[in-house]
Write a protein that binds this DNA or RNA. Structure first.
Length: 574
DNA sequence: GCCGTTTTCGGCCCGACTGTTTTCAGTCG
């Protein structure tokens, strides 16, 4: 079983944690953390034997020493340096550092002076009031640790974007309603549109003397005020979401927005560029010596270092700064580029609304077309369509299109199950009557990488397979992606004229950004589709567009930005 | 430990907040 990038990254994070507790050079610790982040963000598996680039030291933040360690991990699955360290320091100390308020120094003190080696030990020590005896700790610190420890269990670490939006919307309305508040913007990973967000960073500008922090603390949903200052406060909401609010001066708004949008890795790289030009970039502005030369808006910040504006979705330090420098940033797709939806269900299978309602809702959105893709017969739990029922639906759609009189075109389609042997679960004859066919894996997720990949390649061999839906099968926070050689799938898709889906369901977002980027490199175009199970679900489209943007995709790389005639042309595989 | 048309050595982002302190260490982002 080849080791995943995520696991390699975790080994380096644990090494960094234990080294930090051990008192190693902070720069050495940072080097391991940086390498860990780089590895976690790679789209290509380091352990893949067919990987072309074998020289790991060419990865950013990876030098000779870490490259060697990666090679050892890929070969043996082990990191000897970490194991040596774990002989002296309990491995669980690394986990303890995850608890907010506990850093390397405190964890070390707890371990050395109290023999606290695990979270369970920590809980006992807090209960027996042993923690407050330690130098540098007090009763307040002990109590805080106890409270956070109690909440630690069972609480989801990250929140999906849709749920985050549900938390953000009323909070923004509340903040904007405060008299004197001028601007309110959510920065952080929320603005970068990551599929999940850990906490919310909100920037506010306001007239002098506006009691922003008091009012923020008094928000109805606040469960705990973690900290409160004049320019920055942190609260925990009842939903479990942590929110940081920062009051920033208007003149520094762009600099602060940039700083707090991140990613941290992007910011550090940009600061480096600034330092070389004799500039200091921080959340208050861009400074030459002590003179502020920019900072009112983000354009100025980039302009000060000679770069064009970089969209938040690209700010992950994955080549966007280099691309900006060479003036080859992609012109990212926008929601308005989308001209139709190619994956939607009706009451005929497991959707909630009728064919007519779905068509009406799509027309309301200004779409030119909507593909109705109810499930096929294998998916009995979703009352999948057999040949006969599909034939009836084809006729129903023909009649509906006549009534719609060109307002919108409903495409005759289906979401086919890819069976275990790679065959599709309806006969070719009825499939030939459709405008397009979306193909999905809905069961047997646990096949080996080789068999799962072959299963999908086999499905794509059928010229009726147009779009491979939710290619990784992941459900965020619920189910991991199945093991699949995505690069081989993309290669095959490119050869056969198949497309891959960017499923816009907030639970799926599949392809993810890394997958989109791989598709782009493989010159495989994608369809951004909502997989709507109700008329209101059609609104999920923007979540898919977000991920496509994070994956550097342009409108011309997405097939449902095409007009109807162009699209139908593209879908012809023979 | 990484990195380099200012460097192969000497830098590495830095300010806010808390709690425990009598002037600052630890943590966070």
């Amino acid at each position: 079983m080849p080791i995943h990038n995520r696991e390699i990254a975790d080994l380096f994070t644990r090494l960094a944690d234990l080294l930090e507790i051990d008192g190693a050079s902070p720069y050495r610790v940072r080097a391991y953390r940086q390498a860990s982040e780089t590895i976690a963000g790679l789209s290509e598996a380091l352990s893949d034997p067919s990987r072309e680039e074998k020289d790991y030291s060419r990865l950013p933040g990876v030098g000779e020493s870490i490259a060697e360690k990666i090679a050892t991990i890929v070969d043996t699955g082990r990191l000897p340096q970490l194991e040596e360290l774990e002989e002296r320091l309990p491995a669980d100390l690394s986990e303890m550092m995850q608890l907010s308020g506990l850093g390397p120094k405190r964890v070390k003190a707890l371990h050395q002076d109290l023999g606290v080696d695990t979270l369970a030990d920590l809980k006992r020590a807090v209960e027996r009031h042993r923690v407050r005896e330690l130098a540098g700790f007090g009763a307040k610190t002990e109590q805080t640790i106890g409270e956070r420890l109690a909440r630690w269990e069972g609480e989801e670490k990250r929140t999906r974007l849709l749920e985050a939006e549900d938390i953000v919307a009323p909070l923004l309305r509340y903040l904007e309603s405060i008299d004197g508040v001028k601007r309110v913007t959510v920065a952080g990973s929320y603005r970068r549109r990551k599929p999940t967000v850990g906490d919310l960073d909100i920037l506010v500008t306001a007239r002098k003397g506006t009691p922003v922090m008091e009012r923020f603390s008094a928000y109805d949903e606040v469960r705990e005020v973690v900290s409160r200052g004049d320019t920055r406060s942190t609260v925990m909401l009842r939903s479990g979401m942590q929110v940081d609010l920062r009051l920033v001066p208007q003149v520094a708004y762009g600099a602060a927005l940039h700083y707090f949008t991140g990613s941290r890795s992007h910011n550090i790289a940009l600061r480096r560029i600034g330092v070389k030009k004799g500039l200091k970039i921080n959340e208050y502005g861009v400074f030459r010596d002590d003179e502020r030369i920019a900072g009112g808006n983000e354009d100025e910040v980039y302009d000060s270092v000679g770069l064009p504006y970089i969209e938040p979705e690209l700010r992950e330090n994955r080549g966007e700064l280099e691309a900006a420098k060479e003036d080859r940033l992609p012109r990212l797709i926008e929601p308005g580029d989308i001209r139709g939806d190619l994956h939607a269900h009706t009451r005929a299978s497991d959707g909630r609304d009728s064919l007519e309602d779905m068509a009406e809702a799509a027309a309301q959105r200004g779409y030119e077309y909507l593909a109705i893709t109810d499930h096929s017969r294998r998916l009995t739990v979703a009352s999948g369509l057999d040949e006969k029922r599909l034939a009836q639906q084809i006729e129903a759609i023909d009649r509906l299109n006549e009534r719609l009189d060109g307002r919108i075109r409903v495409l005759k389609a289906i979401e086919l199950d890819i069976l275990e042997d790679g065959s599709l679960d309806l006969p070719d004859a009825v499939l030939d009557r459709l405008d397009l066919r979306v193909c999905s894996v809905h069961y047997k997720f646990d096949l080996s990488r080789k068999r799962q990949t072959e299963r999908i390649l086999r499905a794509m061999d059928n010229p009726r397979c147009n779009i491979l839906a939710h290619p990784s099968g992941r459900l965020i926070g619920e189910r991991d992606a199945y093991d699949l050689d995505l690069e081989r799938v993309l290669e095959a898709a490119a050869e056969r004229g198949c497309f891959l889906e960017v499923n816009a369901q907030p639970k799926r977002l599949d392809l993810d950004a890394a997958g989109c980027r791989l598709a782009k490199e493989a010159r495989v175009r994608v369809a951004i589709s909502t997989d709507a199970h109700s008329a209101s679900n059609l609104a999920y489209m923007r979540f898919g567009v977000d991920q496509a943007r994070r994956g550097w995709l342009q409108a011309d790389e997405v097939i449902n930005t095409r007009g109807l005639d162009d699209l139908l042309q593209l879908l012809r595989r023979d």
